[in-house]
Design a protein around this nucleic acid. Structure first.
Lengths: 144, 144
DNA sequence: TTTATTTAGGATAAATTTGTCCGAAATAAG
DNA sequence: CTTATTTCGGACAAATTTATCCTAAATAAA
């Protein structure tokens, strides 16, 4: 469904959000540990999320990653996925055709659009805030 | 969403089904042309679909691929996807966790289950027959 | 100012997926 | 029986994704 990079990116962002809600900055090392992802690869992903403006990064001692608290509930799962995996998952044809739309559909087009819109709406309606809160109060987990 | 192999496999199977409904066997070469997929790679995929029992293959001159007509409406899109991409797309955690279910969910579990079930149901309810018929009467296309 | 710490970013490597090549096996037809 | 045709299947190659390594740049604190 999502790429490995995207899975790691989502998990990392949720973890950063939890810490940010507690006014804490968090290091790459800690993130990778808590999220059970390869350190260096996670670094790349966080780098690109920082460039996309989804998270803030800060170098040096006491440095690390953080998300401005007021933005946590405006960031949607959709934003994270889009930043990492692009929009092919939202717009591409289910069978990989270049030319596929309602007027010149592939065999699965109409059925596919329904489930994909379903996914899109879910991602757009899911805020980082609710994901982070669930993790923070122990309702959900990220390891294993 | 689906792997490239799965995309080619679905397209090829639909094309074979159309021909089979017209009592025709069809060669690898023709399939790859009509479906716009790399010949040798398509061969591998058809081979595995034949092993899975979804299509029949026949060697030698006048050989090729075919699907028993009576089975075309019993084969579901789900069967094809399952044969090629396995069931990870149906059962795996959205964030790649090993341990993720309703009792110990990842942050996106509950939301994810909904869209995935939606996908699963769509695939289970979509018959090869309807896909092939749409293509046969020109309502849909597979090239480009 | 020096040092330790932390992210940035480029180069490289490993793994997986995608794609190719070619000889073997089956088989239909002359 | 021989030949031409077609799928089978193994080895190999290319491309992409995933992952690692190392040096540079920033920066906080002693």
């Amino acid at each position: 469904m999502f790429s490995k990079a995207c899975e790691y990116g989502i998990k990392a962002t949720i973890y950063i959000a939890v810490k940010s809600m507690h006014k804490e900055r968090v290091s790459l090392k800690e993130i990778a540990e808590e999220v059970n992802s390869p350190v260096a690869f996670t670094a790349k992903i966080l780098q690109s999320l920082a460039k996309s403006g989804i998270i803030d990064s800060h170098k040096g001692p006491t440095g690390g990653f953080q998300i401005e608290e007021s933005r946590i509930d405006t960031i949607k799962l959709h934003d994270i996925v889009h930043a990492i995996d692009g929009d092919n998952i939202f717009n591409g044809c289910g069978l990989g055709l270049k030319q596929c739309d309602a007027r010149q559909p592939c065999p699965v087009h109409h059925k596919f659009v329904v489930v994909r819109d379903n996914l899109k709406i879910m991602l757009q309606n899911t805020s980082l805030y609710e994901l982070a809160t669930g993790l923070d109060i122990g309702l959900t987990h990220l390891k294993r």
